[in-house]
Nucleic acid binder design. Structure first.
Lengths: 230, 230
DNA sequence: CGACACTTTGACGCACTTCAAAGGGGGTGG
DNA sequence: CCACCCCCTTTGAAGTGCGTCAAAGTGTCG
């Protein structure tokens, strides 16, 4: 559950002129980043709910440390994960007044939080802010479109694309530290944990990757992985 | 191919104050609709390309009559359709300078076309226009999210959801006139034409729908269809 | 009327799921 | 510090929904 008392006392004086600092991986403390100037830090423990589907979307979040998943429960009880958000990523922004997905902390996570109303009212006067909010939505649109394309691929292609995605978002290098368990990967890719596990095993035996531990994956042959994805 | 000569002579004087008239099914000729005041009509014949993937996204389109599909070709040669646009729908808007999908006319189609630059430059001065452009992107985001959720469902659920979607977008009533062939439906739902055909046949034998002809579908039991979708 | 494109139907194969059980790996208590 | 336990992951075997391949049926336009 959210630390309401802390969040409710968000300072809302508009001390910024742009929200250009919102992009992924930018942790700038400059006056331009509303999360630095207007934000409040909130901690969530593993599997804790950040917000629920259909709750009003009053806040905008930036991941400081940890990881977040957004998801929906389908009518048959399956859980579909819509996105993972890693340090530097911004999430929780909705054009609707209400969240379309629920959000949970994958691990112990620290977020920086600002009121959406502070930004949208600021956008009324500052075209630059409006543009940044629009860019945020457009980036989400591209991300979801890519995710859509993933979901019509084979299991091998989905897993390979997932690994390449995580590699590009993590610190540069061959080694990926996965913040989430197999269950989350499966629900993100629309597969079962068994299929994800088997696919990783087969990628390892074909020397495309190494699996030193279940949460650590070393990319040995990116070209082979790319050959699989669309 | 596009009728370049016509399109190149688009009038670009900004005679509007808002693009509120852009929503689906709005065909208003009021001064508020930029497609009416600034637009040019262009005709496309069946299967004609409107724009290609990676082409620069200079124009914004509104369907007057007919239907449009956007798609990508996957690495294995399969075609994934991203969306269908019906009369009243707006498409072709990109935050990037470049189209992420290709667009084709499903049937003989008439479009109303405006320059994106005319709108984005107008948005610099008119916050109302900026808001409408952002709403357009947000609506696309929701549409793609729903489509994503479709793609992890069973064939029956996908087809049922598709029928309900088309019913809600077509003229009210139980009868759906499909503008597209089975191949397009299959590529939109991530299935084969055989599976789509078999699924429709089974929905007919379970009395959920009737199939007077291949392009006409009558919804007999919407509740049964809804029970299937997520 | 015939040619062609689209749709439907059938038989079979395969990729992924389901069901089941056997490994790890990390944390806690003895 | 070791041992036990719990959860996560891996592996195996069997089932199934959808894809593939093949052919027949249907509608449309020259």
């Amino acid at each position: 559950m959210m630390h309401q008392s802390t969040v409710e006392t968000l300072p809302s004086r508009p001390a910024l002129r742009s929200i250009a600092g919102m992009e992924r991986r930018t942790e700038s403390r400059s006056a331009k980043d509303p999360f630095a100037t207007m934000g409040v830090s909130v901690a969530f423990s593993r599997d804790e709910e950040i917000y629920g589907q259909h709750e009003s979307a009053a806040l905008l979040y930036k991941v400081v440390s940890g990881a977040v998943r957004t998801y929906k429960i389908l009518s048959d009880g399956r859980r579909q994960i819509g996105a993972f958000y890693l340090p530097g990523d911004v999430f929780g922004f909705e054009s609707d007044a209400v969240h379309g997905f629920s959000a949970e902390a994958v691990n112990d996570t620290t977020l920086r939080v600002v009121r959406q109303s502070a930004l949208t009212s600021l956008a009324e006067r500052e075209i630059e802010v409006a543009r940044e909010l629009w860019k945020l939505t457009a980036a989400e649109l591209r991300r979801v479109q890519n995710h859509s394309l993933l979901l019509v691929q084979t299991a091998h292609e989905r897993v390979a694309s997932f690994l390449l995605e995580m590699a590009s978002r993590g610190r540069p290098g061959q080694e990926i530290q996965l913040p989430m368990p197999r269950r989350d990967i499966a629900d993100y890719l629309g597969l079962t944990i068994e299929t994800v596990s088997r696919t990783l095993t087969r990628l390892e035996s074909s020397d495309a990757i190494e699996l030193p531990s279940s949460r650590c994956i070393v990319l040995r042959d990116r070209a082979a992985l790319r050959r699989l994805n669309g």
